[in-house]
């Protein structure tokens, strides 16, 4: 979901790389070799990956917030247990990814700081509110569905630790999408009010889900380099089309309609053609002016600040125990 990060400009001074090393590096990439943490890599490759992996991690962590809202309001114990497990998975995914980013020489503390100061971004999708229970269904079905579309090719990304984290994540993500679709199915087979709730959620989540794949290829500045380095293996538009083709029949099976009057099946190509995406809205949300940007960041900062005493206490406790053990050892000698 989270390759939106690949569309931004890389910060920092321009580095002139040794052309010989650069050629050897590209040859390894072309031979489908994986790059590992201590291997030589161009500075731009390292920076692109740090930004991409950490923004992916931030997205997982911030992604817990819209769903966490509904844990206490889930309609049954079965739904509550599933949602709790899903939100816990998102936290786990964030941790796998932070660990992968740290192998590139950035510290966890720096990464948190970048998120909390607003310097680092996270996926635009989590800045929309979850107004009804059907939104939880839509997030699983559409948001996790879009994430899977994006993440499966990332299992073959050229940087080893990132690829390995993605393999773990993809294995777990399938449950997320299925539980979401099941929620939608139950609502659509329920009362007219429940079905209307499902339709309303689809109306609100459809376009933001399509925006998750990032700007169109014609405007995406860094796709080419990321493709050459095999960080990314499909373009934004290719992945978006795959998602639409997979998702539209699932929506029709639910008996729902999509909020796009131009949506139609193109017999000649076998693809679903869709209308124009509102890229102005996308830019607005990414720039911090979505419906929930401020609320999400305030919640993250609050959690981080209120947890500070725990982090201090466990470190102090560990230091005290180490000192005591040392003293006992000396006394015994």
């Amino acid at each position: 979901m989270y390759s939106q990060a690949l569309n931004e400009r890389i910060e920092g001074p321009r580095i002139v790389e040794d052309p010989e090393k650069l050629a050897a590096f590209q040859a390894r990439i072309d031979a489908e070799e994986r790059i590992e943490p201590n291997d030589w890599m161009p500075e731009a490759y390292r920076r692109t990956l740090i930004r991409q992996i950490s923004q992916h991690a931030h997205s997982e962590v911030v992604g817990m917030l819209p769903e966490g809202n509904w844990i206490t309001r889930a309609p049954s114990l079965r739904r509550k247990a599933a949602l709790l497990a899903k939100v816990q998975d998102e936290g786990g995914h964030g941790l796998y990814l932070y660990a992968a980013a740290e192998t590139l020489g950035v510290s966890r503390e720096e990464l948190y700081e970048q998120l909390l100061s607003g310097k680092a971004k996270y996926s635009s999708i989590f800045n929309y509110p979850t107004l009804t229970w059907a939104d939880i269904g839509c997030i699983g079905w559409l948001v996790d569905g879009a994430a899977i579309m994006n993440q499966i090719p990332l299992c073959r990304t050229s940087y080893g630790p990132y690829a390995r984290a993605m393999i773990r994540i993809c294995k777990e993500e399938s449950f997320h999408q299925r539980q979401g679709y099941e929620i939608m199915l139950t609502l659509c087979r329920g009362t007219p009010e429940q079905k209307a709730m499902a339709q309303d959620a689809l109306n609100r989540w459809w376009w933001p889900s399509l925006m998750m794949f990032g700007p169109p290829d014609s405007e995406s500045r860094h796709t080419e380099e990321s493709m050459r380095w095999k960080i990314k293996r499909f373009t934004n538009d290719e992945l978006r089309q795959k998602f639409v083709d997979a998702t539209v029949p699932q929506g029709h099976y639910l008996g729902l309609t999509f909020p796009d009057p131009e949506l139609r099946f193109d017999e000649a190509t076998g693809h679903w053609r869709f209308g124009r995406i509102d890229w102005e809205e996308f830019k607005r949300v990414l720039a911090g002016h979505g419906p929930c940007n401020r609320e999400r960041m305030a919640a993250r900062r609050k959690a981080h600040e209120e947890g500070a005493w725990v982090r201090e206490a466990v470190l102090a406790h560990a230091a005290k125990r180490r000192a005591r053990e040392r003293a006992q050892k000396i006394a015994a000698e």
Partner: peptide, 23 residues
Amino acid sequence: VGSVHAADAEMALQAARDTYTRR
């Protein structure tokens, strides 16, 4: 399988369990 941050060995084991063995 990966790494975790923790203050001591005992907490590292607990974090590893929660992070890497949920299934």
